[in-house]
């Protein structure tokens, strides 16, 4: 399935009632089995865009389309959250089953499906643990397993590894790539980290500061499967440099504004 975001704008009222323009005239597409990263400086509305695709918010203008057939029992989207958003009162197994419960799957089918995903994400042996008994990396595996369990046409990931320490983050990127090689799930991945975006994605959509609009779409000319050795490859450096040159002035402005 293909996702098309067409001329989407989003304006919302903040706590004091002032209207804030988060996104302006954003268009982008994510093809089937494509891994697209959405990158921009902080406060560029990239998380807002993800919430719009997930249907958690409605666009003020424009529209979001899912093109193609969605087989029955398959979710259009599923989300992986930056702060994991696991249910603390549910065990790993029960967390992974959450979306399947809401989809109305019978208990036996839920358990079987959850076991597959727990296996895939390297959580075997942790089924009965509660989230507070797990490390950050393990918690996000649960987040990924929970999202993949509903077999979403598009997996939405909102800075999934930015709450992790640098080393865990690196390892989780490797694991995500391995999972992606096996499942080929379409992914829209939000990040503010250029290296991460280039290393993971087929294309990087670069957003400007608020109101967020598309500055450019940078294709990443790296082969699949990706390997750590590619982090120094000329194609990697070229893409990263291109993206940095696009947002450098934006990031500098954001920094100056935050200091003022």
């Amino acid at each position: 399935m293909r996702v098309a975001v067409e001329r989407v704008s989003k304006t919302y009222a903040d706590r004091r009632g002032a209207s804030v323009e988060a996104l302006r005239d954003v268009s982008l597409t994510v093809d089937a089995e494509e891994f697209v990263a959405l990158l921009g400086p902080s406060g560029c509305g990239k998380s807002t865009l993800l919430a719009l695709v997930a249907g958690l918010l409605a666009p003020s203008a424009g529209a979001i389309y899912f093109e193609g057939d969605l087989p029955p029992g398959r979710a259009a989207t599923a989300m992986v959250f930056q702060e994991f958003a696991l249910f603390p009162w549910r065990t790993v197994q029960a967390n992974v089953e959450f979306g399947l419960e809401e989809a109305g799957l019978p208990a036996a089918a839920r358990a079987a499906r959850a076991r597959d995903l727990i296996q895939l994400t390297g959580l075997a042996g942790f089924e009965a643990r509660y989230p507070h008994q797990l490390s950050g990396g393990m918690r996000q595996r649960v987040g990924i397993a929970r999202a993949l369990a509903v077999d979403p046409a598009v997996l939405l990931m909102d800075e999934p590894f930015s709450a992790l320490d640098a080393q865990t983050r690196q390892l989780m990127q490797e694991e995500l790539l391995q999972i992606w090689e096996r499942t080929r799930t379409t992914i829209l991945y939000v990040t503010h980290n250029i290296q991460e975006a280039v290393y993971l994605a087929d294309r990087v959509v670069v957003l400007s500061r608020r109101p967020g609009s598309v500055l450019a779409t940078v294709p990443v000319g790296l082969a699949r499967p990706r390997a750590e050795a590619m982090l120094g490859a000329p194609a990697f450096i070229a893409a990263a440099d291109r993206i940095w040159s696009l947002i450098k002035s934006e990031a500098r402005e954001a920094l100056r504004e935050a200091g003022a």
Binding site: A54, G55, L56, A75, T77, A78, M79, F81, E83, A85, F87, W89, F98, G99, E101, E102, A103, R146, V150
Partner: peptide, 27 residues
């Protein structure tokens, strides 16, 4: 609110939200 968003993103309706998020949160 994050857990509520998560539950809604996985298709939870009102009564699901009450039973599976609000009630355990309030326990």
């Amino acid at each position: 609110p994050l857990l509520i968003r998560a539950a809604v993103s996985f298709g939870a309706g009102r009564f699901s939200l009450i039973r599976k998020v609000m009630l355990p949160s309030a326990l």
